[in-house]
């Protein structure tokens, strides 16, 4: 069964339709890449799926449950984890506290509110595990991290909330080649036990890691299928890959 299922999701801003009739479904163990030129509506799609924006029309389901219109915090509780295109962390706090707060969010019921943060072992352990999994060993204030390290911190925060679905908006952007390779390996590993939706511009990378793909142009789905099918598609080549291929 697919973990995430979107059905004809549409988002209009006044007269502009940023996302039009986008349907897709991703199963746990699947890495689905969304590609498309700038302005194709990829980030808007992530914002719809994470609840940052409500859709104008269309529905989407999480593990079979209709979650259309849920606010972002509720979707996060229901198992959606995301990283942001523009790094979005709690800059004045320590790296560890960023991830610990993320871990604490999972099942943060009022009954737990008055536990001493230092003594609440579960979020601390989960934060350590998430940091170890992405291989971020830095300590100190998050604002002092390098760009690449911040991207890793984003992923660690998303992971610490124990999501079933990961929405990763350009996790590689601005990373050096070495860091990029590390993240590529990490993504492949994450796709084993998560449903991953990946937005990425690096085509070599996308075709290497994706199990399935959606090509978006002007808010619409131009083509959907396996990387092999996408590579063979004339429409995609014409509209998008033309310049490279």
């Amino acid at each position: 069964m697919s973990a995430l299922e979107a059905e004809a999701l549409t988002r209009r801003f006044g007269g502009l339709t940023a996302v039009a009739d986008v349907s897709l479904s991703i199963a746990v163990g699947e890495l689905h890449a969304v590609i498309g030129p700038n302005g194709a509506g990829k980030s808007t799609l992530v914002n719809l799926l994470s609840g940052t924006l409500p859709p104008s029309s269309g529905r989407f389901r999480l593990g079979g449950q209709d979650v259309t219109g849920w606010p972002s915090w509720r979707l996060a509780q229901a198992g959606i984890g995301r990283s942001f295109q523009r790094t979005n962390v709690l800059r004045e706090m320590s790296v560890f506290e960023n991830v610990r707060l993320a871990a604490q969010a999972a099942g943060f019921a009022p009954g737990l509110w008055l536990r001493r943060a230092k003594r609440a072992a579960a979020p601390i352990e989960a934060a350590r595990a998430a940091l170890a999994r992405v291989g971020l060993e830095r300590e100190g204030i998050a604002g002092t991290l390098s760009h690449g390290e911040l991207r890793l911190l984003e992923i660690a925060m998303a992971l610490a909330t124990h999501p079933r679905v990961l929405l990763l908006d350009e996790p590689l952007a601005g990373m050096g080649p070495e860091e990029g390779e590390r993240v590529a390996a990490l993504l492949k590993e994450l796709a084993r036990d998560h449903a991953v939706l990946l937005i990425e511009h690096d085509m070599d990378f996308v075709f290497a890691v994706a199990d399935s793909m959606t090509v978006m142009v002007d808010g619409r789905v131009l083509e959907q299928g396996t990387p092999t099918a996408i590579r063979a598609s004339d429409a995609v080549r014409e509209a998008y890959l033309g310049t490279d291929a």
Partner: peptide, 26 residues
Amino acid sequence: LMRTLFGHALLGIRANEDRMQALGYD
């Protein structure tokens, strides 16, 4: 109070409320 999980969540909200929402905090 500020040392509890609640207090830490409050400080997180002060630092970056949108991010806290995306993490699952009401």
